[in-house]
Design a protein around this nucleic acid. Structure first.
Length: 338
RNA sequence: CGCGGGGUGGAGCAGUUGGUAGCUCGCCAGGCUCAUAACCUGGAGGUCAGUGGUUCAAGUCCAUUCCCCGCAA
């Protein structure tokens, strides 16, 4: 039996899964194997400073493996549906495609449509599960393979694979790991699914949470948050869209990106002492105050605790480690960031 | 031609109306110290991104090329 598969996806994560899937060429049982007969990806979009058109990561992989790649503007057209009907897939696999699949498409393949989602469903349904898991300070996340239905990431679960979120993980490192795990989970689960050895498990609606899309505004640092929360926020939004605050310089406010930081690990007591001693005011300095700026140490007062900045970037300039940033910029203790 | 910032010793920056190129680090040597990533003294290291032009004189003004980055996507 040769299973004809259509793969739908767009960004790096999907490209990694496609690569895994396409690399397994040998039959998974004496009489069975699969073939990716076509790939669907979003239309190329302008990127970069010059707004040049660039192929999607999935398209690149498709080209590399010589798989036909289609990039329809819309799925809900007779033409697109007809195209897919002619391809007559036995199975469709979707990974971060970027569009909702209409019901006729979900019903088209004999084995349905499977989706790879980078969270432990029913947690973090939606667009940005990786980021939100980090931002929320979760200790574990993972990848879920599920059978798609009309809802948003609401389908029955076929398999999961989990991974711990390390203190040093950011959205990039976690993404890369989940992409690899996702690919492995896919090629490991698919044979069992196709031979009917897996019974899909419904998700618990009561436990479901939603991971809404990230915007640039989410990267605005609010110093009233705790140092720990800000650390999670920074890691969750790295490398995109990044976090930033504003520094007043003369009569201008310049954008300051915070690329890397960590909560200062002092005891509560030391913390309090520093907060009191470093300020001219009798009470603790308000959140956003620079408490220390020398060598590798750049300390900012937060709503709770102190954030130690490790790497930052001012607008128009390159990213710099704290030490080098300080050597060229005069940062006065007591200055307020906003 | 989407808007904007910038390319100055090894790193990061300053350089005012054109007139001897500075600062914070780093590096090298010496000193202080029980010791040091701390402190003191001295030192090396730059055809100021490239090219052309204006001028008695250009890092600075004009033109142009290359490269980096923020916004926007």
């Amino acid at each position: 039996m040769l299973y004809k598969i259509i793969f739908m996806g767009t960004p790096d994560l999907a490209a990694e899964c496609l690569k895994a899937l396409a690399s397994v060429s040998r039959p998974f049982s004496p009489k069975s194997s699969w073939e990716i007969i076509a790939v669907l990806s979003q239309p190329d979009k302008p990127k970069g400073r010059k707004l040049r058109l660039q192929p999607t990561p999935v398209k690149n992989i498709a080209l590399q493996f010589g798989i036909p790649c289609f990039q329809p503007e819309k799925l809900r057209t007779p033409e697109t549906l007809e195209l897919l009907q002619k391809l007559a897939p036995d199975l469709i696999i979707v990974a971060a495609y970027g569009k909702i699949l209409p019901q006729p498409l979900l019903d088209l393949p004999r084995y349905g449509c499977l989706n790879i989602h980078t969270s432990l469903l029913p947690l973090y349904r939606g667009a940005a599960p990786i980021q939100w898991a980090i931002i929320d300070g979760k200790s574990t996340t993972g990848v879920t393979l599920m059978k798609m239905n009309a809802g948003l990431d609401t389908g029955d679960i076929l398999a999961v694979s989990s991974t711990p979120i390390e203190d040093k993980d950011n959205a990039q490192t976690l993404h890369d790991r989940l992409a690899q795990i996702g690919g492995e989970l896919l090629i490991k689960t698919l044979p069992d699914y196709l031979s009917g050895n897996i019974i899909p498990t419904p998700q618990s609606e009561a436990k479901a949470t939603y991971a809404r899309k990230i915007t640039k505004e989410d990267g605005r640092i609010h110093w009233t948050m705790s140092a720990r929360q800000l650390d999670s926020l920074i890691r969750g939004l790295t490398p995109w869209p990044g976090t930033y605050c504003l520094l007043t310089e003369g009569d201008k406010k310049i954008l300051l990106k915070i690329l890397k930081a960590e909560p200062l690990s002092l005891t509560e007591n030391q913390n309090d002492n520093y907060l009191k001693n470093s300020s001219n005011t009798p009470s603790a300095p308000p959140p956003g105050t620079i408490l220390r700026a020398e060598n590798d140490e750049l300390w900012i007062a937060c709503g709770e605790g102190i954030l130690r900045i490790l790497e930052l970037q001012r607008e128009g300039k390159k990213p710099l480690p704290t030490r080098q940033f300080i050597s060229g910029t005069s940062l006065t203790i007591g200055t307020q960031l906003e």
